[in-house]
Design a binder for these strands. Structure first.
Lengths: 130, 130, 130, 130
DNA sequence: GTGGTCTAGACCACA
DNA sequence: GTGGTCTAGACCACC
């Protein structure tokens, strides 16, 4: 699994790490039981402080995507599949989609872009859609 | 056009204003040539500093959605500035969609949610535009 | 509102702060809209680092008990009343109650102790039970 | 008596063992004079280090719930060591109950949950003891 | 002036 | 050797 952080970006480093782990899980690059690199190792690789990585991992733990323990390290948990899309997700999606439509992109194109992105996840995930 | 800001929310006020203007444009509530309320008026309505409103309008100007001038105030510009989705939009969309998939939501459900949101824009658009 | 921390205790300082805020909310000492002391102020009062207080406040924010913002500081939110007792609460309660019973305390006495504690909350909360 | 440990859980293994023994004593599954499995046997069953089991047993010994000796192994002691609830138990209970009340759960519901848990102990106790 | 992010480095708990 | 806690101090974003 490959993670890249942009130290000069406006988005917080811990958020970048969190986002890339989320995407890796969606892609299937990380599956249930996969272990993430140790906090301090990842920090050393990026040349950043381990507290920053810790914050990213803690976020993922709060979201129920990974489990942290001193013995096993950071382990990806089973996808919960417990619920529907939370309201704050829908709110963020509404704003994002509105942004595209407001720029004059046809709704069909926006939807197509979403489908393409979603397909890219499934393709990697299942290897049965070539 | 109605804007509501939640002074106690975790999302910055200027972002809330910007988002609601974007959504209003997508809905068709605001169309090309529509004028937004004067900065100081809007600030007074919400009881917030006019710098905050100014920041929101400046963001919209940077995105090419409105034009600012001393004489005409804030005017919504023609929509078709970009024909393609910018890469940072795709990046944000990828993260958002991955978030849903990583939580175990089926891709079809996610796509359906997107379609529903997009349809809600068009519905309002056609009502208000003819 | 009075908070005391024991620097020498085995329970983490941030947890002590979090627990006392939770108890203050249950007691009614802190109600919806009450503001907690600024992170750095509280840290200075206790002679501890502001990061420690920050962690406590962040925990409370995750639990939905307070809202944090740069302008309003830490504000107690409305009690959600959205759900039943979560399963992990029940698990902790089971262990705690078992602890008392295993020591030979009659179940009635344990229940009575629980009622007394709960009554002490209500008494302060409503001022109608003197 | 059946003990289950979740090696991947966030709660320390020694704590899990200790908690389950406490609950078994409360239930009446373990009564005065019952012997717990030898440390090394239990450790082998779970595939964990015997120091971990040792720590759990030592905790129980400190709490006066079991007696350790080379000859007899770990034996459950008479329950009636304390007649009153220790202050740290009350403190933990206060925090736990406050947690529920602060989330908006009515005090009656919380008390009812406690009674249900306590009843579940007694039910098992009487079944197994006559 | 508030909280948010990041760094650097210490010691502890668990296994 | 892992994550967890705490300290000390820096700069930034928002208002």
């Amino acid at each position: 699994m490959i993670i890249n952080v942009d130290l000069a970006a406006e988005v917080p480093i811990y958020q970048q790490i969190r986002d890339q782990v989320v995407e890796a899980i969606a892609h299937g690059t990380l599956t249930e039981g996969s272990t993430l690199p140790p906090i301090r190792t990842l920090a050393a690789d990026f040349g950043i402080n381990f507290h920053t990585v810790n914050k990213a991992y803690d976020l993922l733990r709060q979201e129920g995507l990974i489990r942290l323990s001193r013995k096993t390290g950071a382990v990806v948990t089973a996808a919960a599949t417990d619920q529907y899309l939370p309201s704050d997700w829908t709110a963020k999606a509404r704003t994002l989609l509105a942004e595209a439509v407001a720029r004059g992109i046809p709704a069909d194109d926006v939807l197509h872009a979403c489908r393409t992105l979603l397909d890219s996840f499934s393709a990697t995930q299942q290897e049965d859609k070539p």
